[in-house]
Amino acid sequence: MLSPETRPWTMAQIAAEAGVSATTVSHALSGKRPVNPETVARIQRIVQEHGFVPNSSGVRLRSGRTGVIGLAVPDIAHWYFGRIAKGVEEIANERDYGLVICGTMNADPRREKRYFNMLRTRAIDGLVYTTSRSMSDLDELVTVAQGSSIVFADEAVDRLPEVPSVTTTVREGARLVGEHLRELGHSRAVVIAGYAGLRSTTERVAAFREYFPTALTLFGDFEQQSGYELMGDLLANDVAFSCVFAHNDFMAIGAIRRLREAGIRVPEDVSVVGFDDVDVATIMSPALTTVRKDMVEIGRRSARTLFDVIEGEPGSARSSVLPVELVVRGTTAPRRD
C-alpha cells in the first residue's frame, strides 16, 4: 500500500496548492475550457511533482458515458482493417476516448453477440461496425442496431438503411476500370469478385458489365490464395480472356502469381487491375494498376459519424460516400492481337 506521502494528490489538494478552484484544475488538465497559460503551467508543475489520477468512474457516472467506443472488424490482423482502425483511433484520441477493437472472425455469432452485448449493457458508448464478409446472418445485428449508437464502416447494409454508414463510390471505381480496359482495346474480360452477398460486390459487377456485358464472374474471398486458385481454374478450363478485374489487390496479386507460373506475362499477354491500393501494390513489379480507396479516412469519417450519433439527436447523423480514383501503373497495357 502506498504511504500518504507517495500517494498521488487529489484534485482538491492540487487546487489548494495552486491557489485555484478544483474546476479550474479540471479545465486546465482537460483543455476543454480556456485557462490562463501561467495558471496552466503552475498546475501542470504541481501535478508532475505530486501526481494526480482523475476519478474516471465519477466522470462516467455524471455523464452517463463510459468514454470508450468499439470497432468491430472481421479480422484484426488484416492490413485492410488495420488501416480503418488507424483512422478510428485518431478521432477517438482527439475526443479523449478509449477504443476497444473487436475481431468478429467473419461474423462468428458467439463473438458478435459478446461485442453487441457491450453496447446493450452500455460498456461502450458506441460501435463502428465493419460488416462481415459473408453477411450470412443479420438478425442479431438488426436487433442490436435498434436504439444503439452504431455506424457501418466501408459497407452499408440493405436491411438497415436507417443506420448511418461511411462507404466509397465503388460503382464509379468499377466503371473507371471498365473504361480504362476498353480504351486499351480489350474485349474479353474476367472478374474475380468478392463475396456474392455484399452490396459492394453487386455494384462493382453491374458497373463493370456496362463495359464488358459478357464478362465471366467468379466469386472469391478477398484473400491472395483465392485469386491464385480461381485463376488456376480459368487456365485449366481454357477460358479465353485478355484482362482481369479483381475486386481487391490481394486477389489480383494471387491471380498474377498463377499467370506467371503458367508462363503468361502481365501486362504483355494479360492486363490485371485490382481494387483498394494496398501498400504492396506500389512495390511489386510491375506495380499494380488499381482503384485507390482511403481506408484511413473511412475510419476517421466513421468515428466522427459515431460521435455525431452519440452526442446528437436521433437521426441527426448522416451517411457519407467517399470518392475513389483509378491509379494506372504497370499491370495494364493495350491488348495484343
Rank of each mutant, 00 (worst) to 15 (best):
E325L: 01
Y115I: 10
D125F: 04
G197W: 13
A236P: 06
R204W: 10
T168C: 15
E172G: 13
V170S: 13
Y115E: 10
F245T: 05
D154A: 10
L176K: 14
F116I: 01
M135R: 15
E49R: 14
I43V: 13
M11E: 03
G274R: 03
G98C: 01
S242K: 06
V266W: 00
A303M: 08
G315H: 05
M118H: 11
S132K: 00
L216P: 09
P286V: 01
T214L: 13
N55T: 09
T66L: 09
T24P: 08
V278A: 14
E210N: 03
A255F: 03
P323I: 07
V25K: 01
R188I: 06
G232Y: 04
G254T: 01
A77F: 14
E49I: 00
S316Y: 07
R204V: 09
F219T: 01
V20M: 06
A206D: 11
V266A: 02
V20R: 04
T289A: 05
Q146D: 12
V73K: 06
L160I: 09
A107M: 12
N55M: 07
P164G: 05
Y211T: 11
V327W: 13
R33D: 07
P286T: 02
M135W: 04
G312I: 06
A252M: 02
R335K: 08
I101T: 02
S319C: 04
D269I: 01
A206E: 12
D277T: 12
R336D: 10
D276T: 08
A252K: 00
K113P: 07
N117H: 13
V244A: 04
P334W: 09
S316A: 14
V205E: 06
V266D: 01
H27L: 10
I69Y: 00
R111N: 01
A236M: 05
E311V: 05
V270Y: 05
F208K: 08
V73L: 07
V244G: 09
L119S: 02
I256N: 00
G58S: 11
L181F: 11
T168M: 15
T290H: 04
R292L: 14
A22S: 11
D158E: 12
P161S: 11
H27C: 10
S187Q: 09
I150T: 12
L138C: 05
V35E: 06
L29T: 07
V35A: 07
V25T: 01
H186G: 09
G64T: 01
T282W: 08
E112V: 03
R304L: 08
V68P: 03
E162R: 15
I101W: 00
V328A: 09
Q225V: 11
V291E: 08
D238V: 06
V100R: 04
A317Y: 02
T169G: 11
G274V: 05
T305I: 00
V35Q: 08
L141Q: 02
I46C: 08
T201V: 09
Q48R: 14
P54F: 06
V190A: 05
I84D: 06
F152L: 15
T290I: 04
G220N: 00
